[in-house]
Simulated scan of single mutants.
Amino acid sequence: MKKIKYPPLKREWFVCPVCGTKLIIYDNTAVLSGGEYIKCRTCKNEIEIKK
């Protein structure tokens, strides 16, 4: 019987580069389609996510 191979998943937090607040959690299988922006809930800056 063959064993099923699962992809290696690694989950990390994306932190705000200005204040260091944890914003979103993502894994290594996430695909980014262009410039994605998110607003920090602490310092109210708009941050572009590049990973």
Rank of each mutant, 00 (worst) to 15 (best):
M1I: 00
M1K: 08
K2F: 15
K2V: 15
K3F: 10
K3Y: 08
K3A: 13
I4W: 10
K5P: 03
Y6E: 13
Y6V: 12
P7V: 10
P7C: 06
P7E: 10
P8H: 15
P8N: 15
P8M: 13
L9N: 10
K10A: 13
R11W: 08
E12S: 11
W13R: 01
F14Q: 08
F14M: 07
F14G: 02
F14R: 10
C16G: 07
V18H: 04
V18G: 00
G20R: 07
G20N: 06
G20I: 04
T21P: 03
K22Y: 05
K22I: 01
L23H: 01
L23F: 01
L23G: 02
L23N: 02
I24H: 08
I25E: 13
I25F: 00
Y26H: 11
D27Q: 05
D27F: 09
N28Y: 05
N28K: 04
T29I: 04
T29L: 09
A30D: 14
A30Q: 10
V31E: 14
L32P: 06
L32E: 09
L32T: 09
S33E: 14
S33V: 07
S33T: 10
G34R: 02
G34S: 02
G34Q: 01
G34T: 01
G35A: 05
E36M: 04
E36Q: 07
Y37W: 15
Y37F: 14
Y37R: 08
I38V: 14
K39P: 03
C40E: 02
C40Y: 00
R41A: 04
T42H: 13
T42V: 12
C43R: 02
K44M: 12
K44W: 11
K44Y: 13
N45H: 11
N45F: 07
N45R: 13
N45D: 09
E46M: 14
E46K: 15
I47F: 08
I47W: 09
E48N: 00
I49T: 06
K51M: 13
